[in-house]
């Protein structure tokens, strides 16, 4: 169990504008990585490519398990997830949002209920589980995003600015949740943040991006 991600010489351009220029690195399984960098440095594009939402123009993203490459099919897509900065909340209840990924996988009702209750408890949304998800505050919405992602037990979780535009109390709650996930060492966590302090608190490895390139890395 556990996936290693190997990105080699990734290039990506939109309308002739090069967003990623020769990005190469390896994310080891079970690690916690924080990606820092100014706006427009290519972090979110890199995440979309790593999470298989988009293909690079050049270069390769490969997932390895026990030293063997795995093909980038639906099975692999279902072992990883990306929490988008603008979440894309479904117009239904908090519970059904959290249950979405499990329903896609055809799990039994009882299993879904147990798992969803567990993650909603983890993110502190149990009391709001039957409320419309679109009525949540921005902090609660981000927590729901985490619950929705964690419900499917991902082996790699990409978090694109999970604490952007939310209040300090919710930032603290979300950091606690991420630390809990990290302590279990069941998933590789790769997150984008603009806060160097947060990067240090949550990440074991730091990467800095600028102008589409990884400029620095450290532990």
């Amino acid at each position: 169990m556990g996936l290693t991600i190997e990105a080699s010489h990734i290039f990506k351009a939109y309308n002739g504008h090069e967003v990623l220029k020769d990005c190469s690195f390896v994310f080891d399984r079970g690690g916690a990585y924080a990606l820092l960098g100014p706006n427009g440095s290519g972090k979110s594009t890199l995440f979309r490519i790593l999470s298989l939402l988009e293909r690079p123009d050049r270069g390769q993203v490969r997932y390895l398990e026990n030293g063997r490459f795995i093909s980038a099919d639906l099975n692999l897509r279902r072992r990883i997830t990306l929490v988008l900065p603008r979440l894309g909340v479904f117009n239904t209840t908090v519970f059904r949002n959290a249950a979405y990924g499990l329903k896609l996988r055809g799990l039994a009702k009882g299993e879904i209920e147990a798992r969803v209750n567990e993650v909603l408890d983890m993110v502190g949304l149990t009391k709001k589980r039957w409320q419309p998800a679109l009525g949540l505050s921005s902090g609660e919405t981000q927590r729901l995003g985490l619950a929705r992602a964690l419900a499917i037990n991902p082996e790699v979780i990409f978090l694109d600015e999970p604490t952007a535009s939310i209040d300090p109390v919710n930032i603290e709650i979300i950091e606690e949740i991420i630390l809990t996930v990290k302590s279990r060492r069941e998933a590789t966590i790769i997150m984008i943040t603009h806060d160097p302090g947060q990067a240090q608190r949550l990440g074991d490895h730091l990467l800095v991006m600028k102008n589409g390139k990884i400029m620095a890395r450290g532990v």
């Binding site: 939402l53 897509r77 279902r78 988008l84 603008r86 979440l87 894309g88 479904f90 979405y100 896609l104």
Partner: peptide
């Protein structure tokens, strides 16, 4: 974003 969210969840 709804379609993207669905994709990220498999």
């Amino acid at each position: 974003i709804i379609r993207q969210a669905a994709m990220t969840l498999g």
